[in-house]
Design a protein around this nucleic acid. Structure first.
Lengths: 205, 205
DNA sequence: CGAAAAGGTGACTAGGTGGTCACATTTTGG
DNA sequence: CCAAAATGTGACCACCTAGTCACCTTTTCG
């Protein structure tokens, strides 16, 4: 989630307390509403600074938003990184990945909502950022899947693009529903559906 | 998608031409922007009627919106119905279903966008309508899946809720991407992933 | 000390929104 | 034919938005 212009230097010169108050208010607002509907006015009111001050720290609303989204993904990376470090086959890595995402959502619900809502943004001003994020994700997964297919872990007859498509869809839906208390049990069952497929297998797995 | 208050009688007393102009303008607006961001002012300007007139025909913005969404789903039903009439096993019905959805999106791109955007609505005023729609969908699918499992077409070891979850996620993503020119070929491949699962099968299918 | 630079401010602008209402026009029907 | 009912209208209301800028305060530093 590469930021655009990121905050100006003045923002980092701020006392910690003030900086944190701004971040807190912004995170709360952007967790509740998508970019287009979130209100900068409400943010400055919530953290008690003047409207004009905000424009000393950030170029505009988009700049503040992308900074907050960046913060959220920084936090999230600390969690999901563990899944890749542990290693194992593609299925155990994916399970670990979603388990870590789940922990992140539980430990940092506001950051989780911010990160998640980001992908639904329709605003013109965000489309290039979204495209960047999507490309980097699909590239990472393609690499990962390619290895698993070469190793014979994943059915070579499948279309890699279609596999990515399915995983992307299910992953997004999973993460979307973390707020609403989806259990780790259920996560396992969803991944089973993907692993095994719908039709009954004659072999034992 | 049961409407709320539906249009007032005055709307149906209107000359066809005027009524169609209103529908056309509303569909165009709601196809482009989600409910919250769509502008009633722009709609009345586009179809050349007075703001006040709109409130003679509809209770409010939500009422007009739900009417348009209803129209879209009426059209869509005419397409997807064919999938169920044809019969066949669960896999062929689902393939037919998405093929029909695809045709609908191609024939009525604006209606398709309206129907699709509906599910992303975050507005408080629409949540009860959304819940209604979701419940009726999941009920229909549950029935369908239950039969397929009883007949042994679908692996009985899978969790039905997890299967629904996966199908719902993938279905939504498929339909979302119809605008961007997804081919029938690709659709088949995505359904293959669901049918067969990721891990290689020892038996031939 | 004092001047210049940096930081803070909130009233203000311009532009939107959904919804209303007193009034004008048209249609209906006794 | 005329009154009453139905319909059409757009200026207007209250409320919101992102962003600006002239002015004030604080900090820096020669």
């Amino acid at each position: 989630m590469g930021g655009g212009d990121v905050p100006k230097q003045t923002f980092f010169n701020l006392e910690l307390e003030r900086r944190q108050a701004i971040i807190k208010a912004a995170v709360e607002e952007f967790a509740q509403l998508p970019f287009e509907q979130a209100s900068l006015t409400k943010i400055v009111e919530k953290c008690g600074i003047a409207k004009g001050s905000m424009y000393q720290y950030f170029e505009d609303k988009r700049d503040l938003y992308l900074y907050v989204v960046d913060l959220a993904y920084e936090q999230k990376r600390d969690y999901v990184r563990k899944a890749f470090e542990k290693g194992g086959d593609i299925f155990s890595v994916l399970e670990e990945y979603y388990l870590e995402s789940y922990s992140f959502a539980r430990d940092h619900p506001l950051f989780h909502q911010v990160a998640n809502k980001f992908w639904d943004s329709k605003a013109e001003a965000l489309q290039s950022e979204l495209e960047k994020g999507r490309l980097s994700r699909s590239h990472d997964f393609a690499q990962f899947l390619d290895d698993a297919m070469t190793q014979g872990k994943v059915n070579k007859a499948l279309d890699p693009e279609a596999v990515f498509f399915v995983y992307h869809a299910v992953g997004k839906e999973l993460v979307d529903h973390f707020d609403q208390g989806q259990s780790a049990q259920f996560l396992k069952k969803v991944l089973d559906v993907l692993r095994l497929g719908l039709t009954t297998r004659r072999e034992e797995v």
